[in-house]
Design a protein around this nucleic acid. Structure first.
Lengths: 254, 254
DNA sequence: TAGTGGTCTAGACCACTCC
DNA sequence: GAGTGGTCTAGACCACTAA
């Protein structure tokens, strides 16, 4: 049992303790409490959460307040709600949610999932760039993965992935699935919540050109992605170089 | 006075008319009603809307239902709500909201707004590509605008804009501001609600290279944007070609 | 002081799922 | 039929703004 704010019955919003700066709405406190539990793995992906009523009683708030927090977590794709069944921790290995972080689309418009082939894997001391992107200390080590990926049967992308070795113990020895983020969640308890991508146009190096079957110097799209977990820690750095002859990067702005 | 659904007092959600497929929640009907009014220009950008209570009485629903609709419109950046003051139609000519649709960022991280210089303007029959992107009929005409844009004082981008001439009467004779979308809203009553961007890497043509001060064949980022108004009509096609030596395209994925 | 949006509660009924 | 989330209402009090 863990009560929040002033709780209790009757109207009023009920300020939390303290008197100065800090005022967080109750629904925000509930949101953060549930988010912390998700980050700690109290509920695993695919598992069902207690019902709105149970959570409300446990936390000492009204059902409407719990609902508002659950709605926010659902909007962030961390939960899935199904009428008549319950509220579940989102699983991101589904066909459709592969495309949550994968913005490349075939010109043909086919919704085929990308295939992957691992070229290399190794553990090594982190480079300066890797320490910078991942917020690592000087002595830190990383696991590096290099892959080729194909869309619609056409190889179009080569990507270099760097992971903090301390967060992914033993990953170098595992079979790597096509969608790494479900592996991160299921094996290492790390849920990717946000990613920041920076795109540039570059000329292919001779080595990249060889792997992609293109001429050296050809223009290519470089995608520099840092992915963050529920605690907003940088967890993965991924540098992708992509041929965009039959493929483009799609972005919807609102 | 315009009432929605079954309205009235007491509990119950109240289904709308008909018996078969269609069921739209009341708050959704309110949302659509308000959206239609915005699209029709009933309230101009910057103007205040009636209060929650007034809207609730007018539409014959509870204040909570109106609130839910207003919150959704606020989340879509169409409204701005200010505690103690009221609800306003969003204005998108502010400094910070220039970056709503402009995703290029200087490597230096400076938040300086981009500058523009118009190279050419003309009206002409729509090309096949323009008809395709803008959903135009065979005889339609477009206004074309070509601009150079600079970030941090460095020219980095050349863009070709195509507008349906029927939607923008007389735009060829106007002074063009740096941020076109506020002009679209204020002079032509067209609010841009969504844009779809497709990014590719291309090699600079000799002409583009000349304008951008780079070598022909240099890799550049091509941004193909179609912008839609509140009625989801395609309203602008913009093809930008950008040097990404000191600039990148930033995207946040959730 | 009056009016606005923001938060919180309590309770009703509906739609869906499963037993 | 029991239990879940989804919708809707009514009413209270708080925080902020402006006159």
């Amino acid at each position: 049992m863990e009560r929040l704010g002033t709780g209790g019955s009757g109207g009023g919003s009920g300020r939390e303790g303290g008197e100065g700066v800090g005022f967080r709405p109750l629904y925000r406190q509930v949101h953060d409490t549930l988010l912390r539990r998700l980050a700690e793995g109290v509920w695993q992906p695919g598992q069902i959460l207690p019902s709105e009523g149970e959570l409300a009683r446990e936390l000492g708030v009204s059902q409407g307040t719990v609902r508002k927090a659950l709605d926010a977590l659902t909007a962030d794709s961390l939960l899935v709600r199904r009428q008549g069944r319950g509220t579940f921790v989102a699983e991101h290995d589904d066909k459709q949610s592969v495309f949550r972080f994968f913005k490349l689309r075939s010109e043909a418009g086919g919704e085929a999932a990308p295939e992957s082939r691992v070229l290399a894997r190794a553990e090594a001391p982190a480079s300066v760039d890797e320490r910078d992107r991942l917020g690592l200390v000087r002595q830190a080590r990383v696991v590096r993965i290099e892959r080729l990926r194909a869309l619609d049967g056409r190889v179009c992308l080569i990507e270099a992935i760097a992971l903090p070795a301390s967060l992914f113990p033993g990953i170098a020895a595992l079979d790597l699935p096509n969608t790494l983020y479900s592996l991160y969640a299921n094996r290492f308890g790390l849920t990717i919540a946000v990613a920041r991508e920076r795109l540039r146009a570059v000329a292919l190096s001779a080595r990249e050109a060889g792997h992609l079957g293109a001429a050296p110097g050809s223009p290519a799209l470089e995608i520099d992605r840092v992915a963050f977990d529920l605690d907003e820690r940088p967890v993965e750095w991924r540098l992708s170089t992509c041929l965009t002859e039959h493929v483009h990067y799609q972005s919807i702005l609102r």
